[in-house]
């Protein structure tokens, strides 16, 4: 999920990529995860997914071709490349001056550094771009064998797993959840396209749900250890 969302915020996506995301295999895994959530949260997340799927379905199924890929490209540029859309940077959302590379960017970098990682040279976005932050979460959820990133999962010991989950939890709590809900609200308010409305709604709810699940995982790990 994080990987998909990161890609959607990073660059234009074609309908094929969206279609791929909704493949049965992915949906089965998602459903099993959602099932672990409290009923009211599960219902909201399911609703978001359903809306997004419906929006996408109208296009890639070719049955109700409401929007072509050009519209999706225009909407991406409008939302993420022009100032009339949103500024997908934590620095702009949480910084006092609404500029890039302000204090929140420093804090994000410090977080990455605290666990010994640096942004890859090939990454063109800044460390606090929403796509990079979601990408960070995708990497760690993959490593901890979480959620969708089940393929290639290696056996890892409980202590390491706890560390990886703790990192995700802390990053969500200290960074993503402090600004991404506001970003998603702005996207929902500004977008003219149901796809990005759906993506924003899904992101908003997914982040909140993930925090609950990470908290639960941490509790379980602690109980086990005891």
């Amino acid at each position: 999920m994080y990987s998909f969302l990161s890609q959607v915020f990073r660059d234009e996506v074609g309908w094929q990529k969206v279609s791929d995301f909704f493949q049965e295999e992915n949906m089965t895994v998602l459903a099993s995860i959602i099932a672990q959530l409290p009923p009211e949260k599960a219902q909201l997340l399911n609703q978001c997914l359903s809306n997004l799927r419906e929006s996408a379905g109208r296009n890639f199924n070719g049955k109700e071709k409401e929007f072509g890929s050009l519209d999706l490209r225009k909407e991406f540029a409008y939302l993420f490349l022009t100032p009339q859309g949103v500024y997908p940077f934590e620095s702009v959302y949480l910084g006092k001056k609404k500029l890039l590379m302000d204090k929140p960017w420093e804090e994000v970098r410090a977080f990455y550094r605290s666990i010994g990682i640096e942004k890859d040279k090939s990454e063109i976005h800044l460390e606090d771009h929403i796509a990079v932050e979601l990408g960070f979460m995708a990497s760690f959820s993959y490593l901890s064998g979480d959620f969708l990133s089940y393929e290639g999962e290696e056996k890892i010991d409980e202590e390491e797993k706890e560390f990886l989950i703790q990192v995700q939890h802390d990053f969500l709590e200290q960074h993503l959840l402090k600004w991404a809900p506001g970003l998603c609200d702005d996207i929902m308010a500004k977008t003219r396209h149901p796809f990005y409305h759906g993506v924003a709604a899904l992101t908003r709810w997914f982040l909140a749900c993930d925090l609950s699940m990470l908290e639960e995982s941490l509790t379980m790990l602690t109980v086990k250890a005891d």
């Binding site: 490209r73 540029a77 022009t82 500024y87 609404k98 500029l99």
Partner: peptide
């Protein structure tokens, strides 16, 4: 953050103040 970030092209042939160029990356 308002800086131009990537090359873009216009998709709306109409031009002028208040007109959305319909940029695409």
């Amino acid at each position: 953050p308002d800086r131009i970030k990537f090359p873009m092209k216009r998709t709306n042939p109409e031009k002028g103040p208040g007109v959305d160029p319909g940029w695409v990356k």
